[in-house]
Amino acid sequence: MKPIKVAHLVKQFNKNRVLDDISLNIQPDTIYGLLGRNGAGKSTLFNIITNRIPMSAGEVTIEGEPIANNDRVLNRIYLMSEGNLYPSRMRVGEIFKLTAGLYQGMDLELVSNLTQQFGLDVKTRFNKLSTGYRSILKLIIALSVDVDYVFLDEPTLGLDANHRELFYDALLDSYAKRPRTFVISTHLIEEIANLIEQVWVLQNGHITINESTEEMLQKGYAITGPTEDVVAYTAGLNVIGQDQLGNLRVNYVYGELVGDRAIPDTVSVSHIDLQKLFVNLTSQEVATVEN
């Protein structure tokens, strides 16, 4: 399977530009994390890539072929979304059967294993399922269906901690057995931080970060110490956020530190985790709204 190419994609709702000049290469057999705040346009991006809604400009292609109404391509993609597209009166078991028929194949053994592990009743009608079990149903399909690209929009919505553990286990197990691409969008960043190889940060309609998780984490620093020293040391650096406790100051930096600038004895430099990094990178959005 070839990469999905998203080129100069624009999505406009009335006068509101939700996505603006997005270009991405979605490579085979890779686990991606799409991070963005509420309303950043993550679901819209997913909906466009899977041809559920049209784009205003740009293109989405595989091997130069546009994805629009192209079954050959669409049938290799599964999008698990919050929207409920299954017939509401249909039973869980029937939905599995239907999916197996419409997609080119499905691992029915995995379906029955996961159904059992999650305690999903195949006789229940879709509209009688709780939010959590709707997610579970869609996750089971997402992991079992024979596709090359799986997009998971808030996969753990309504799942308790045990079920989330079970899901991550199943995801990695399935990925090991049959490598394919997963693009995961979630607010539970800590839980997927070690899982994802590549991070996309979607902010104000743009992809502001497109890097491997490792590289991104290497660029995130917390500089801690007395305020004057920290401010002096981080002058001219890309300070993305700060914490203040009395005279103790933490400046969060994203990017290179200045190599030849000596670190004062009073100041300590450490890396920060993905969640902290993301929160600091994207907290300005709210600040600008508040001002």
Binding site: D71, N75, Y86, T99, Y103
Partner: peptide
């Protein structure tokens, strides 16, 4: 239902 199952409009 069809678009959820990877089948286009045509």
């Amino acid at each position: 239902l069809f678009i959820q199952n990877g089948i286009g409009r045509k």
